[in-house]
Design a protein around this nucleic acid. Structure first.
Length: 437
RNA sequence: CGGGGAGUGGCGCAGCCUGGUAGCGCAUCUGCUUUGGGAGCAGAGGGUCGCUGGUUCAAAUCCAGUCUCCCCGACCA
């Protein structure tokens, strides 16, 4: 992409409304624009990141056999009356009437809808288990939206739902999601710690929040020190095998969100206890027959009897993750994207577009990078070098290739690693080899 | 929903107390000079001062109402 033609309205000054780093940087980098409180438009740069995160989430859901579908944003109120949640949900639910005065709502979540689909389609225990998900916009009319996309009213969420014959099956589905989440966040360069969460009316321990550590996180958390250095060798796991040992390994050590903290355990941990601030990026939850019972979602068992299915739901805040990654990965100059979610891999800076030789070298590099499938943002604007450096640091592409006549005379370009800040001169060939290899 | 703050060119702000033809910086456009970490000079364009009503000869400024946004708290993915 040529920056001269890219819609990326960066700001030198910070808009007054933005308080936390991710919000400031997303506005300054031209990733988002606010529409109204808690509702944002995603500009091309932000949209690229959103799509990258969405893709990783999708791939890791697919990897455990969870099937993608798409449910609507607008739902009929009657469905929610079946589960008694239409009244329970309160003013956070955005209620709408259509032209025929039918009561509708903008979905804050989709348990009712998926249960409705399931009960109308599945009759036999032979069709279980089922794992289904979609990635869809949600609306929750928060009392007080804040922190940019971290707590918006409209937000993109991956929500998955599992249907199993019994508790043991539900546990297997839960474990799949648990491991899938570990892998998902790891791929984004995040350290997400699974923390025991409020278990609700079902009881047991099948509810976990996945929290990433960041100084500006919303909630106070506490965990065993070992989580900080825990190796996350998860890429070679057999996802069809028994995942219980992995889940056990990750839940053996103490980790709790604010509401779930246990002073006694924490005292016993002593120096092994770490308290920090965290951002919840995922939540998995087993809720048994709460909805299937209320809505009549049952299958025929082996003996012909009706068996109410066991369900769980599993959410990842996709749009929130964009902000969360920035909270975890930024410095004074701007964003420092982890490679897998970076909007572009390489920023190519032409320091002197007026110079034919310099521009020729840049065009050549740009074409080669494109030809090798490297996403490059080529700053071919006539701006001064300082503007280009500042913008490129701000938007945080992992590698910057800086091309100027001075270096070219020596046959070298400067390559900067945004993460480490290391800069060095290299021949064009070796720079290309590194970036395309 | 309680408490606090703010709405003035795209962005950041001053002006309001003490009413009198709307300003500054950045950005944008033109020209010249510049060009290796957010350039210099000269010129130009752009705002019914959130909205409605009131007071007044006269309102960005005073008064009343209203809408929106932000912050703290409670609440929540």
């Amino acid at each position: 992409m040529r920056l001269s033609r890219y819609f990326m309205p960066t700001l030198k000054e910070t808009p007054a409304e933005a308080q936390i780093a991710s919000h400031r940087l997303m506005l300054r980098a031209g990733m988002i624009r606010q529409s109204s409180a808690g509702i944002y438009s995603w500009l091309p740069l932000g949209f690229r990141v959103l799509k990258k995160i969405e893709r990783i989430v999708r791939e890791e859901q697919d990897a455990i056999g969870c099937q993608e579908m798409l449910m609507p944003t607008i739902q009929p109120a009657d469905l929610w009356r079946e589960s008694d949640r239409y009244d329970d949900y309160g003013p956070e639910m955005l209620r709408i009437r259509d032209r025929h005065d039918r009561e509708m709502l903008y979905g804050p979540t989709n348990e009712e809808q998926i249960t409705d689909i399931f009960r109308g389609a599945v009759r036999s225990y032979r069709d279980l288990p089922q794992l289904l998900y979609h990635i869809q916009w949600k609306f929750r009319d928060e009392v007080r939206p804040r922190f940019g996309v971290m707590r918006g009213r409209e937000f993109l969420m991956k929500d998955a739902y599992s249907f199993d014959l019994d508790r043991a099956g539900a546990q297997r589905s839960y474990n799949k999601m648990f491991v899938s989440y570990l892998r998902t966040f790891e791929r984004m360069g995040l350290k997400a710690i699974p923390m025991r969460a409020e278990s609700g009316p079902i009881g047991g321990d099948m509810s976990h929040e996945f929290v990433i550590l960041a100084n500006t996180g919303e909630s106070e958390i506490a965990c065993h020190r070992d989580f900080l250095d825990m190796g996350w060798a998860l890429s070679d796991i057999d996802l069809d095998g028994d995942l219980q040992p992995i889940v056990d390994a990750y839940t053996a050590k103490y980790a709790a969100t604010d509401e779930e903290r246990d002073p006694e355990t924490e005292r016993a941990l002593g120096d092994d206890l770490v308290t920090a601030r965290g951002i919840e990026v995922g939540h998995i939850f087993y809720f048994g027959t709460k909805y299937s019972k209320a809505m009549g979602a049952a299958v025929n068992g082996p003996d012909g009897e009706d068996i109410t299915v066991e369900m769980g739901s599993y959410g990842i805040g996709v749009s929130r993750l964009v902000g969360a990654v920035i909270e975890a990965c930024h410095d004074d100059a701007g964003i420092v994207w982890p490679v897998p979610v970076a909007p572009f891999q390489v920023g190519l800076l032409n320091l002197k577009p007026d110079d034919p030789a310099c521009t020729a070298a840049c065009e050549d590099l740009y074409a080669t990078l494109n030809g090798n499938g490297v996403e490059a943002l080529y700053d071919d604007r006539p701006e001064r070098a300082g503007v280009k450096f500042a913008d490129m640091d701000l938007i945080g592409v992992p590698w910057q290739v800086i091309v100027g006549p001075r270096g070219l005379q020596q046959g070298v370009v400067e390559v900067k690693d945004r993460g480490t800040g290391e800069r060095g001169e290299q021949s064009i060939e070796s720079a290309l080899a590194m970036l395309t290899g």
